[in-house]
């Protein structure tokens, strides 16, 4: 929808695509290499770039689809929300554990999914596992529902609404707004 490079120069784009199949992966690998080497010297940066280029290039067949993330601001905001929720979730879970197991009301919830791409679904499942008292347990074979186990379930409809508005909507905007 709002992709400025669309239709600009298809030939040049496909050549660039062949040379650099996964730019996001390349950037991520370079950053990871720099963190691993624990230095930001020019030599390490070049070496990291080399690895970041070569590894996606030689493992091409394991990455059939190209990751496209739009709306970086939404993504940043999403990461902020998740980090905040992780903190709150930990305090909540710590309190629930200390308060005693007798008063927990654990339960399973079926979350109907709106997301369709593999990456977005796995990111959503991981986010759910990291945040308030919930663990994603099983994805149905048709990829339409995600089974969630909640540590202290009071209102499953509210839980589903919260997950949908806080995590699923931004992920859909970032990874599936074509």
């Amino acid at each position: 929808m709002n992709n400025p490079t669309d239709g600009a120069a298809p030939a040049a784009k496909s050549r660039l695509h062949r040379l650099l199949p996964h730019p996001i992966l390349t950037a991520a690998l370079t950053v990871i290499w720099l963190l691993l080497a624990n230095s930001v010297s020019a030599g390490q940066f070049l070496l990291g770039l080399l690895f970041g280029w070569a590894i996606p290039r030689f493992t091409l067949r394991f990455w059939p689809e190209r990751v496209q993330a739009r709306r970086p601001l939404v993504l940043l905001r999403f990461i902020g929300v998740v980090l905040y929720d992780i903190l709150v979730a930990n305090l909540a879970v710590a309190w629930l554990i200390l308060r005693g197991p007798q008063r927990l009301r654990p339960g399973f919830v079926q979350l109907p999914l709106d997301l369709t791409s593999d990456l977005a679904i796995s990111l959503l499942a991981n986010t759910i596992s990291l945040t308030p008292g919930t663990v994603s347990a099983r994805l149905s074979p048709d990829r339409r529902t995600l089974l969630i186990h909640a540590l202290d379930l009071t209102d499953s409809a509210a839980l589903i609404a919260a997950i949908k508005s806080r995590y699923e909507a931004p992920l859909k905007q970032v990874f599936e707004s074509c």
Binding site: V93, I97, H149
Partner: peptide, 24 residues
């Protein structure tokens, strides 16, 4: 606290919550 949850809680699915959050 994560380890405490692992010991105190009473079924596997609730025990799963302790380590994945508190310990991380």
């Amino acid at each position: 606290i994560g380890a405490l949850g692992l010991v105190r809680l009473r079924d596997f699915y609730t025990r799963l919550h302790g380590p994945t959050k508190a310990t991380t």
